[in-house]
Computed example of a mutant assay.
Amino acid sequence: MIKFFRKIRQNLLMENKTGKYFKYAIGEIILVVIGILIALSINNWNEDRKAKTYEEQVYTQIYKDIKADSLNLSLVIKYYKQKDTLMNRILYDSVPSIEYETINDENQYTFPYGIRLITNHDNISNTKKGYQLFKTFNTMDIDSDSLSFSIEDYYSQAIINEKYELVKNATDRNITEFQQKDWFLDFAVNHKLNLDYLDYINNSRDFKIRVFDYQLFAIKNHNRDLIQQQELAEIIKEKIKDRLEK
């Protein structure tokens, strides 16, 4: 093709048709420019298509991650709700007396109104595979997009969860201090019901205070954050579905 155009130019020069030569040269330049613009347009289209495909993959992964998070959040929220009911009965002296009559060597560890209520906790470990991919985006659109703000907000709440640390600290403190009680070895090692332990969980003011502290940290604060996180997770899921359907 290049040889073809070159031959035409040479013939025009040899025939001393300078005017036609310059017109032809200008036309050739225009054709080259048009060819370059078409190539750039195709390249940009390919790049946009690749970016769109990658964006869809990222949002699909985030959707899967948040869906899994939401399921785990539901389980933990339900777990804390059940605990809240038990703790309120302890704090308001509404545990039926017959409940304490059922405790024995075999079931004292799983007894719902015992120390196990305030010596364990649960938390969410968020799946961040999609979020790590999301962080690789580097466009103005993604930075100013409402969906991206929601995603950033969700993971900032999930990563920085100081209230969970309060629950964990309260739990660890209870375990450490219970280990100093005379009845603890019977409870944890000998699997023998110690009457002092029964009296402690039934009548002790100290036990009620610990229950109140745990409820404050776990139910009133941490669990409230988990509920908000789940609500945000559901909002993001809907936004992602809308985005992917466009």
Rank of each mutant, 00 (worst) to 15 (best):
M1A: 11
F5K: 09
R6A: 11
R6F: 10
R6C: 08
R9C: 04
Q10I: 11
M14T: 14
E15Y: 08
Y21V: 02
F22S: 02
A25L: 15
G27L: 05
G27Q: 04
E28N: 00
G35Q: 06
L37C: 04
L37I: 12
I38N: 01
A39C: 09
L40Y: 06
S41P: 05
N43P: 03
W45K: 09
E47M: 02
D48L: 08
K52I: 03
Y54D: 14
E55A: 12
E56Y: 06
V58Y: 06
Y59K: 00
T60P: 06
Q61T: 12
K67A: 06
D69A: 09
S70R: 12
L71R: 13
I77P: 09
I77C: 03
I77S: 12
Q82R: 14
K83F: 07
K83T: 13
K83R: 11
T85V: 10
N88C: 01
R89K: 15
I90M: 04
Y92F: 15
S94G: 03
V95E: 02
V95G: 04
E99P: 03
T102W: 10
E106M: 07
F111K: 05
P112L: 01
Y113K: 03
G114W: 08
R116E: 01
N120D: 14
D122L: 13
N123G: 10
T127L: 11
T127D: 07
K128M: 15
K129S: 13
G130Y: 11
G130D: 03
K135T: 12
F137Y: 11
N138C: 05
I142M: 13
D143S: 12
S144D: 09
D145A: 14
S146H: 04
S146E: 15
S150K: 15
S150I: 07
I151W: 01
D153E: 15
D153R: 13
D153C: 09
S156P: 00
S156F: 07
Q157I: 03
Q157H: 01
I159Q: 09
I160T: 06
I160V: 14
N161G: 09
Y164A: 07
E165S: 15
K168I: 03
R173L: 09
R173Q: 11
N174S: 10
N174T: 00
E177Y: 11
F178Y: 15
Q179W: 04
Q180R: 15
D182E: 13
F184D: 05
L185I: 14
V189W: 10
N190T: 12
K192N: 12
L193I: 03
N194A: 12
L195C: 04
D199C: 07
Y200H: 04
N203L: 11
S204A: 12
R205I: 14
F207N: 02
R210L: 06
V211Y: 00
Y214D: 05
Y214T: 04
Y214Q: 06
A218C: 05
I219W: 05
N223V: 02
R224F: 08
L226D: 02
I227G: 02
Q228H: 13
L232A: 01
L232G: 01
L232F: 01
A233D: 05
E234A: 10
I235F: 06
I236E: 02
K239R: 08
K239T: 02
K239Q: 13
I240Y: 04
K241N: 12
R243M: 07
L244Y: 00
